[in-house]
Structure formats: C-alpha cells, structure tokens
C-alpha cells in the first residue's frame, strides 16, 4: 500500500488514498464502540493481541472513522511538512530498541543560520491532535515509556526539556499503543506503572466465518477458498500448544489467498505462505502440510 519508492515523504499519496478509500476493517466485537468511547473520554488505549490479527488496521480504520485524514510517518520523522499542512492525524511509530526520547520529542538541528528546533513525531501528534500509535511498544527503550506517562494521565501534557516548554495536548489527541504478550524475552515487559494508564482491548483472530470474509475481501480469492483458508487457520492455531510459537495470522492467510488469486497452486501457496513461515521444525511442517492436504483438494 505504501509506495516507498517515492522520492520524499511529502509526496506520499497516503492521505488522498485514505480519503478516497475507507480502510477495510471487519468489526468483530465491540472494539469500535470501546475505542470511540475511549477517544471521546481521552483514555489512552492499549491494543493487545497476536501478530497479524488486525491491530494496526484497526487503528487506521478508527482514524478514518473518527474523521481525520491519516498520514504515516517514519519514526525519525525529520522531514518537513508542506507549508500550510498542519494536521498529522495518525502518527504510527514502529518502535525499536534504539528509539530514544528525543527521536520522539524532537531535537535542535544546525543550519546555515544557526540552530532550528524540529518537532519529533510525538510532539507533532500532540500539537495537532492526532492519534499517536506506538506499534510494539515493548521494543522501545525504557526511557521512552516514561515520556508517555504525563501524556497519558489527566495532565495530557508533553514537557519538552530542550526548549523548556510544555505542550498541552490538543483535544483530539489520543495515544494508542500495541503490545504482543507472550514474548519470550524476560527483560522485555511493560511496567505496570505504564500499563495501568491504558484501557486494554484484546484482539484475537476472528471467528472462522468472519475471517473467511476478511480473507476473501483482502486477497480477492473465491469465497470457497477463503473459507478453506480460514478453516486452515483455525486448525493450525489448535497446534499452538504443541510446539508452534504463534498460530497462523490472518495476514498470512491473506498472503496465501493472494498467491492463490495470482494463480499459484493452492497447496504450494499454503506451503510458502503459511507452513514454511510458521516453523522450521520438519515434523511440525509435515503435520501442517497434512492438514493443508486434507483441506484442499
């Protein structure tokens, strides 16, 4: 969807794209109501759930739904915005272990005339009343999570130490983070002081019929194949307690569906998109392949 070969950030057609098209999101439970309510009540939201179950898509959808155009920024976000364009309605930051506080808040840069302060993505989101989405927040450095604290309680402020200023968040601003529990690393976990500033919406893979609908819609494969893929997903997730670290995500199932729509033979598509992606263990691979070969003719 994102055209990264564009020469500069400004030329992303992403806003137009979103204005034209509603992001496809299939509501499963009451998550839409919950999020809307939280948004109106200024309560930060924590999205929990396994990989590829639609967390990011949900935020995009909510940004669209709540009536603001969306733009995705890279986390270094240093590029200038076009003159006159001030709104940054959904700022998605993929967190990683070298993400520091000033990457988020902003920094001084030198130019010919001296120094110039550049707002970081978080500051911009706070100023412009955007939804700030920190993806995989546990990956970020611990000091960044502390930045979140004043923003996420009743104060809703972002102190910028460098400029000696405090930014009070726009009324429309909302912080939203995602978190995938079940990581094995012991040293990466969300602190309770951080966690308890959010409401948590749990995501899981949708039920079979809804998932089939999503697969069909997203991959363009036939309803029958989508249904079988959803069935496959369900069966594979049953193996999660038997050596599979993660079940097949909806995203993977969609990939398989897309390959199939492109004319790849079904079993082969499942093998490359699902089986081999999920595990390297031969016995497990073989077992999943047997399930695939039972479901597909």
């Amino acid at each position: 969807m994102v055209q990264t070969d564009q020469p500069s950030y400004k030329e992303y057609a992403i806003e137009e794209f979103l204005v034209r098209d509603e992001p496809y999101y299939r509501v499963v439970g009451d998550e839409l109501d919950l999020f809307t309510a939280a948004y109106h009540q200024h309560i930060p939201v924590l999205l929990k759930g396994p990989t590829g179950c639609g967390k990011t898509r949900f935020v995009e959808y909510m940004a669209w739904k709540l009536g603001r155009p969306l733009s995705v920024m890279k986390e270094d976000g240093a590029q200038e915005l076009k003159e006159g364009e001030v709104r940054v309605p959904l700022v998605t930051i993929a967190c990683h272990e070298d993400l520091t506080a000033s990457d988020l808040v902003g920094r001084y840069l030198l130019d010919a005339n001296g120094t110039r302060w550049i707002d970081g993505p978080m500051t911009r989101a706070v100023k412009n009343g955007a939804i700030l989405y920190l993806d995989e927040v546990v990956e970020a450095r611990k000091d960044t999570t502390v930045l979140i604290h004043p923003l996420t309680d009743h104060r809703r402020i972002l102190p910028i130490e460098k400029t000696g200023s405090i930014v009070e968040a726009d009324d429309r601003f909302l912080l939203c983070i995602s978190y995938n529990p079940g990581y094995q690393s012991a040293l990466k976990d969300l602190k309770h002081s951080t966690r308890q500033r959010f409401i948590s919406i749990e995501f899981d893979y949708p039920p079979r019929d809804i998932e089939a609908e999503i697969i069909a819609r997203e991959s363009g494969c036939t309803a029958e194949i989508a249904d079988s893929l959803a069935k496959l997903g369900e069966k594979i997730r049953n193996l999660k307690e038997h050596g599979l670290q993660e079940g097949a995500s909806t995203r993977l199932l969609i990939y398989a569906g897309r390959l199939i729509s492109e004319g790849i033979e079904i079993r082969r598509a499942c093998q490359v998109a699902i089986v081999w992606t999920l595990t390297d263990e031969p016995e497990l691979q073989r077992s999943i392949e047997e399930v695939v070969s039972s479901i597909f003719e």
Binding site: N238, L239, H242, E290
Partner: peptide, 15 residues
C-alpha cells in the same frame, strides 16, 4: 506417530 498426533490435534482442537 508424531505427525499424526499433531495432525489430529490440529483437526480436533484439543490435545
């Protein structure tokens, strides 16, 4: 056995 065990577990949804 191993393969069939996993296969059956996948299908039935229980161990």
């Amino acid at each position: 056995k191993g393969i069939i065990r996993l296969y059956c577990s996948a299908l039935s949804g229980s161990s």
